[in-house]
Design a protein around this nucleic acid. Structure first.
Length: 888
RNA sequence: GGGCACAUAGCUCAGUUGGUUAGAGCGCUACGCUCACAUCGUAGAGGUCGCCCGUUCGAAUCGGGCUGUGCCCACCA
């Protein structure tokens, strides 16, 4: 077989993936005699395209799922997508506007039709990209958060919560874009700093029977136009400047309304004058104050942020024009004090950039405190664990201070609220009724008539639910809860959840609450939180910053395995990942190393006409074999351990170290001198073990080489490495002494290389070495002569009982080098440095040994250790000094 | 303002219950195309473990303080 010098992932990855699909290896079913392992994917938005964050998140999941599958679990990775309300609606709205249309022009029904068309056409783009990454999801089970059955679950949950009194309707300040005329979530209204001004305005004080003498008070505001909606002033109770004002009345300029003056901790005495205007209908904080103190709400704006009739003569004006005019009027009336520049950070519409207007409107809320309680308990009691554990505190801190959740959205794409209004009943209500239930029917299906008055004049709420209101049900809704399906029974609660820290609150915390509330179970046992993907400078990768590295491009260039390996190597648990194009070379180089090592083994087997029928190796292990098996065992043990505690990067480093620096650097090199059936078996045996270990991280190349081994040997191997068993430690009888002997030999090779470099002798210059070995080492060195000579580039290796001089010495070996010429100066410099280093070290040890407290207090073994070290190093120092004497 | 972290080689990070001359990978330097691999090999340089105090025979490791950085939440009238 002719194998390329370079590994070419592009040629093999797609075929391998198709092979896995064809064999149905990703499918998982409830299997009574197996333990279950299940991860539900954080459903990507249907509008999403694969970015590095996805690549990181999903690689971690795939690693775990593949690892557990090989360990014999019924391992299910449950895939799906999220309908992503606003994001998707925006995409379709944009294409509409390209045709010069707004969604209102075509109507709700028609617009939804377009949305579904878009979803069917593009909604699975990201799924296809995940396949390129190698994701072993059980695709047949894929769910979508707008599936018909899923919608049923959402409605069911809404109704249950409503009936329990945990969902209510109320007026609240929300982010409002006056241009788009829609409400926005906080995430959709990112804060931006703008240059504003702080205006100081005089409010006249109403003369009253008390001893108030001042004419006016000064209030600072950045938004003077909203003053028309003021219904109170407030100051901090600790602020003595205004103490006397309590219960005083102030007159609102222009309007002439009488304002109460209240005290509240929420007011910052250091801001402005310490006296703040309270505008309940136009500011979130003022809104809460108004609720607390029972203040009046005066709305002065229309949907498009022009002022309404409450603004008297300013009615009809745009908010910015009104600001100017109001300021002018105040100046005219002598009520304007001063203004100064002031940085304001305020929400801006993420679509059009318009400054957000906080707007009072009726919304639906979930009462969170009762839901949070059990969700706090399970985390406090470690029934759900976070990795890294520090997130536990963050989670708890947030949960202790949880706020009610606004779940209604004024958009069209999403789960419509299962809420119906009886028009007749509602006509009897006043508009300001905040939490009345009258005239409201909450029902999964449209009721035929009002249960109260029998009217058939019912209308469904126009709003849809926040996307997270469907996502928070994900871990059990995907298994068709509330039906008791076998899958729900077997795979739920799931094993772990892998996610970025950004959505800990939006999603993870809410899933825990929903699961406990509806299924009375935790949704998952472990929460694995990985970091954010950043560029080299530490900026978050984002399209707008233009610093993204496209994972698909990396796959195209280096292959999915290289991408996966690099990410796993770089991402230490929970830490942010700093990426640049070069970072992916680690993976590419390692792929190539695996490829070439395998290529060597397989071609040599072919060249030597070796036929491998089994991998029985135990009976005739030589010392080098044992040494390799020993390290293999260590690797198996550590990799298994680290993957089990989600320290993937530690596992990856161990595999890298073993394969490159044990297997390739030494074992393969040594095997070249004596490439027989036994060595071939050893090589293939260890290679297969390694491939299995690396398979979760590098599924494609491991499968590819596994298949090559199958085709080039007569081994009876599994059809795919995917379904092979996870490696176990090999039974091995090995004395510590044997390990030491091998290490001594390696040490000798290294020392010779070292000396050559120190003496300025080219490595290729073949020298003669005379060596004196310990009794226990004799046999080994004589059989190992060939490889020692080759790896140290020697002409001859002579075993002697006495040496003329000793250049190196350890427990087992001492040797001398025949030298003709060398770079004396270079050598002396090196030697002197080594000598002074050693002397320093010896000094610190002798200091320790002379310390009576140390001898007295430290454990005996530690003292002994130091003494031994001292002797060793002294000997070493002597030898170096001796070297100096003879060479200088 | 509240909370949570982090601070070790130029960069990214390891460093297990306190006992090393503080490690790895990348990068860098020198030499080398040694018959799997130059996407390679060999060797090397590079750190007073942010600062200060304390506990201890002994601190990168434990405690306190300081400085700096990052993240989350709230607020910005």
């Amino acid at each position: 077989m002719n194998l390329d010098k370079k590994y070419n992932p592009k040629q093999v990855e797609e075929n391998i993936y198709n092979f896995w699909i064809k064999e149905d290896y990703f499918s998982s079913h409830p299997t009574p005699n197996k333990k279950s392992f299940c991860i539900v994917i954080p459903p990507p938005n249907i509008t999403g395209i694969l970015h590095m964050g996805h690549a990181l998140n999903n690689t971690i999941q795939d690693v775990l799922v593949r690892f557990k599958r090989m360990q014999g679990y019924a391992s299910l990775w449950m895939p799906g997508t999220d309908h992503a309300g606003i994001a998707t609606q925006n995409v379709v709205e944009r294409s509409l506007s390209n045709r010069g249309l707004r969604k209102e022009d075509i109507g709700r029904e028609e617009f939804l039709k377009l949305l579904w068309e878009w979803t069917h056409k593009y909604g699975s783009t990201i799924i296809e990209q995940l396949k390129k990454l190698g994701a072993s999801c059980d695709w047949k089970r894929a769910r979508f958060t707008m599936d018909e059955e899923y919608s049923e679950v959402v409605k069911e949950v809404f109704v249950r919560l409503y009936e329990k009194g945990l969902i209510y309707r109320g007026k609240y300040i929300i982010n409002w874009c006056p241009r788009c005329k829609t409400a926005l979530s906080d995430e959709e209204a990112p804060y931006k700093e703008i240059d504003g001004r702080l205006y100081y305005i005089k409010y006249p004080v109403k003369k009253s029977p008390s001893k108030i003498t001042q004419e006016y008070v000064v209030v600072a505001t950045t938004r003077p136009e909203t003053m028309l909606g003021d219904t109170a002033l407030a100051f901090n109770p600790k602020d003595t400047r205004y103490k006397w004002r309590k219960d005083a009345k102030v007159i609102l300029p222009i309007i002439g309304r009488e304002l109460r003056v209240i005290e509240d901790e929420a007011v910052d005495p250091d801001f402005g004058t310490g006296l703040v205007k309270v505008t309940p209908a136009h500011d979130p904080l003022d809104f809460t104050l108004a609720k607390k103190y029972n203040l009046e709400f005066v709305n002065i704006m229309n949907e498009d942020a022009t002022l309404n009739e409450n603004a008297k003569e300013f009615s009809g004006m745009d908010r910015f024009k009104a600001r100017k005019n109001i300021l002018q009027t105040l100046k005219d009336e002598g009520l304007f004090d001063k203004e100064e520049p002031h940085k304001i950070s305020a929400g801006h519409c993420y679509r059009c950039g318009t400054l957000i207007e906080p707007r009072l409107s009726t919304q639906w809320f979930v009462r969170m405190k009762p839901l949070a309680e059990p969700a706090i308990k399970v985390v406090e009691e470690d029934k759900i664990k976070f990795y890294p554990s520090r997130w536990k505190k963050v989670y708890l801190n947030w949960m202790y201070n949880i706020q009610d959740w606004c779940i209604s959205r004024q958009i069209w794409w999403g789960h419509r609220l299962p809420v119906y209004y009886c028009k007749r009943c509602q006509n009897n209500l006043s508009e300001d009724t905040l939490s009345d239930t009258q005239g409201i029917i909450v029902s999964k299906t449209r009721p035929p008539e009002c249960p109260v008055c029998g009217s058939k004049d019912l209308v469904q709420d126009e709003d849809v639910l926040d996307t997270w209101f469907s996502s928070w049900l994900w871990p059990f809704a995907v298994f068709y809860w509330p039906k008791q399906t076998p899958e729900l029974d077997y795979f739920y609660p799931t094993s772990c959840l892998v996610t970025a820290s950004e959505i800990l609150f939006f999603w993870v915390a809410r899933m825990i609450m929903a699961s406990l509330e509806f299924t009375e179970e935790i949704p998952f046992k472990d929460v694995i939180i990985h970091g954010t993907v950043r560029d080299e400078k530490g900026f978050k990768m984002s399209k707008s910053l233009g610093n993204i590295i496209d994972p698909l491009e990396i796959i195209e260039k280096f292959g999915a395995d290289s991408l996966r390996f690099s990410l796993m190597m770089l991402a230490s648990t929970g830490a942010d990942v700093y990426l640049s194009d070069e970072k992916f070379l680690v993976g590419r180089n390692f792929s190539n190393k695996i490829w070439n090592a395998s290529r060597f083994i397989l071609t040599r087997i072919e060249e030597e006409n070796i036929v491998i029928r089994d991998l029985e190796i135990k009976d005739n292990l030589d010392l080098v074999d044992k040494w390799l098996i020993y390290h293999l065992n260590q690797t198996v043990e550590e990799v298994t351990k680290y993957l089990g505690i989600y320290k993937i990067n530690e596992a990856v480093k161990k595999m890298y170290e073993f394969f490159w620096h044990i297997f390739c650097d030494w074992y393969i090199e040594i095997s070249k001198d004596n490439f027989n059936l036994h060595k071939a078996k050893m090589l293939v045996f260890c290679l297969i073990h390694f491939l299995k270990l690396i398979h979760p991280v590098m599924p494609f190349i491991s499968e590819h080489i596994f298949q090559l081994i199958k085709s080039m040997t007569e081994l009876d191997l599994e059809k795919s490495i995917m379904v092979a068993n996870w490696p176990k430690k090999v039974e091995l009888v090995l004395k510590d002494e044997e390990l030491e002997i091998m290490d001594s030999a390696i040490r000798m090779v290294r020392e010779i290389r070292n000396l050559k470099a120190d003496l300025g002798i080219p490595f290729s210059e073949k020298l003669t070495v005379t060596v004196k070995v310990s009794e226990r080492c004799k046999d080994f060195v004589s059989v190992s002569k060939k490889w020692i000579m080759r790896l140290a580039s020697l002409k001859e290796l002579e075993l002697k009982d006495n040496l003329e001089r000793v250049l190196f010495k350890n427990k087992d070996l001492e040797f001398n080098l025949s030298l003709s010429s060398f770079d004396r100066e270079k050598f002396v410099v090196r030697l002197n440095k080594k000598i002074s280093d050693l002397e320093m070290h010896l000094k610190s040890i002798s200091k320790r040994l002379e310390n009576i407290s140390f001898i007295k207090n430290a454990p005996q073994e530690k003292v002994e250790e130091q003494r031994e070290k001292f002797t060793d190093l002294s000997n070493h120092l002597q030898r170096l000094k001796y070297l100096k004497d003879i060479f200088v």
